[in-house]
């Protein structure tokens, strides 16, 4: 697919959307998509499903809250050009550490270990007051002004999120073509054979997790600016599962799927109130997830590209069933 065909409408979106749609749907989808991309990157290229992505995002978000303007009077104010790289760096380091811990685990065991890390971090943030301000966390976190432009402005935050999403996708597609990215995919296919080529298996696994930490961290920073607060609830089981649901809905076979999944998730989340009871959102998203897993195991992105392929080559219409 030609990127310009998608990018130009997305750039023009603020012209047609009101602030509610732009902020509550478009920006939120992009941010959630970036966080889900960090998971679908790991799942697609390393073959590991991680439940610790909300932790990596949270570490970046908490860093921004702690070192930026907030209304709870905790932390130290640093200029954004220090706090942003610091937040990203801590997310990368935490990703690398989680990779180091989970490096020998695959399948269900990798899920268990990363879930344990995610849940442990959740409880840690609830009980630690000096850094995380317990379960209330930080509120009144304000996005910085860069060159006179406030990132609190809906249009500015939307464009920044869009730019970050595009950059994240470009980084992923460049990274997987690099020698290290190829090694990561080789580890996914046959880890023992990678060692037999003379290549250490630990480095690619740790690097993959660290890179996913960078993506998650970028999403986490945007998220804390978007929400203007962060607390233990931002890193708890809820967000952990949301990220997984978004990645699965979008499909784990192509990185862009994360954003498709995010749009569907956010639309359902925003308008579930109008369709059914607010309390029934989990039922609704559960049914959607079930349908996707049964009807399109490759996710919506895969479903869409199958349709496109079929429209282009009508002669193979009978071959595959939906």
């Amino acid at each position: 697919m030609r990127p310009a065909l998608i990018l130009i409408p997305l750039l023009a979106l603020p012209l047609v959307l009101n602030d509610f749609w732009l902020t509550q749907v478009a920006t939120r989808s992009l941010i959630l998509g970036i966080m889900a991309l960090s998971l679908s990157f790991l799942a697609t290229y390393l073959g590991v499903v991680s439940f610790a992505q909300a932790t990596m995002a949270g570490i970046a978000g908490y860093t921004i809250a702690y070192f930026g303007p907030n209304s709870v009077g905790i932390g130290v104010q640093l200029p954004f050009w220090i706090s942003i790289p610091l937040a990203l760096m801590l997310a990368v380091v935490s990703g690398g550490l989680i990779g180091l811990i989970a490096r020998r685990s695959r399948g269900i065991y990798a899920i268990m270990i990363t879930l344990a890390i995610g849940v442990a971090f959740f409880y840690f943030t609830r009980q630690n007051y000096t850094l995380f301000n317990g379960w209330t966390g930080f509120s009144g976190v304000r996005a910085p002004e860069i060159g006179g432009l406030s990132l609190r402005d809906p249009l500015a935050l939307y464009l920044l999120s869009l730019g970050t999403a595009v950059l994240a996708l470009a980084l992923v597609s460049g990274f997987v073509r690099s020698p290290l990215g190829l090694t990561i995919q080789a580890v996914r296919d046959a880890p023992g054979r990678v060692l037999a080529l003379g290549i250490s298996v630990t480095t690619p696994i740790v690097a993959a997790f660290a890179f996913s930490g960078l993506l998650a961290g970028a999403g986490g920073i945007l998220n804390v600016w978007y929400q203007e607060r962060i607390s233990s609830f931002s890193v708890g089981l809820g967000p952990i599962i949301d990220i997984l649901i978004v990645a699965v809905i979008g499909g784990l076979r192509h990185p862009a799927g994360a954003f498709v999944g995010a749009v569907v998730f956010v639309l359902l989340d925003t308008f579930a109130v109008d369709l059914i009871d607010r309390e029934r959102f989990n039922t609704l998203i559960g049914v959607v997830l079930l349908l996707i897993v049964i009807v399109a195991p490759g996710g919506l992105q895969q479903l869409a590209s199958d349709w496109v392929a079929r429209l282009r080559r009508p002669e193979v219409k009978e071959k595959s069933t939906v």
Partner: peptide, 11 residues
């Protein structure tokens, strides 16, 4: 790359 090893592997 595996046989040659070294840091070029991650560059």
């Amino acid at each position: 790359a595996g046989v040659r090893g070294g840091w070029r592997q991650v560059l």
